[in-house]
Simulated assay, not measured.
Amino acid sequence: MPEKVTLQGKVIGHISGDVFTTRRKRAVHFMRAYNGYAIQEDVFGRLLRQGIRIIRVVETDTGTVLETTSETFDQHGIRFDLGHGRQVALDEHYWDIRPPGQLTLL
Rank of each mutant, 00 (worst) to 15 (best):
M1F: 05
P2K: 01
P2H: 08
E3F: 14
K4D: 13
V5W: 10
V5C: 14
T6R: 05
T6D: 01
L7W: 03
K10Q: 14
K10F: 14
V11D: 00
I12M: 11
I12C: 14
I12V: 15
I12E: 02
I15M: 02
S16I: 11
G17L: 08
V19E: 10
T21G: 04
T22E: 13
T22I: 13
R23K: 09
A27V: 13
F30Q: 10
F30T: 10
M31R: 15
R32W: 08
R32L: 07
A33P: 00
Y34V: 02
Y34N: 08
N35Y: 04
N35M: 06
N35C: 10
N35H: 07
A38V: 06
Q40N: 06
D42W: 09
V43L: 09
F44C: 05
G45C: 05
L47T: 00
L47M: 02
L47C: 10
L48H: 09
L48G: 14
L48W: 04
R49G: 03
Q50Y: 10
I52L: 05
I52C: 00
I54V: 08
I54Y: 11
V57K: 05
V57I: 11
V58G: 01
V58R: 13
V58D: 15
E59F: 00
T60W: 01
T60F: 01
T60H: 02
T60M: 09
D61N: 14
D61W: 04
D61T: 15
G63E: 02
T64M: 08
V65Y: 05
V65G: 04
V65T: 13
E67Y: 02
E67F: 05
T68I: 03
T68Y: 02
T68R: 04
S70L: 05
S70I: 09
E71S: 08
F73Y: 14
Q75I: 15
Q75F: 03
Q75R: 14
Q75W: 06
H76W: 06
R79G: 07
R79L: 04
F80R: 11
D81Q: 00
G85R: 06
R86L: 05
Q87V: 00
A89M: 07
A89N: 03
L90W: 08
L90R: 09
D91C: 13
H93Q: 12
H93P: 04
H93R: 15
D96A: 13
D96E: 02
I97W: 00
R98S: 13
R98T: 11
P99A: 11
P99M: 06
P100Y: 07
P100S: 12
G101H: 03
T104Q: 11
L105I: 06
L106R: 06
L106F: 07
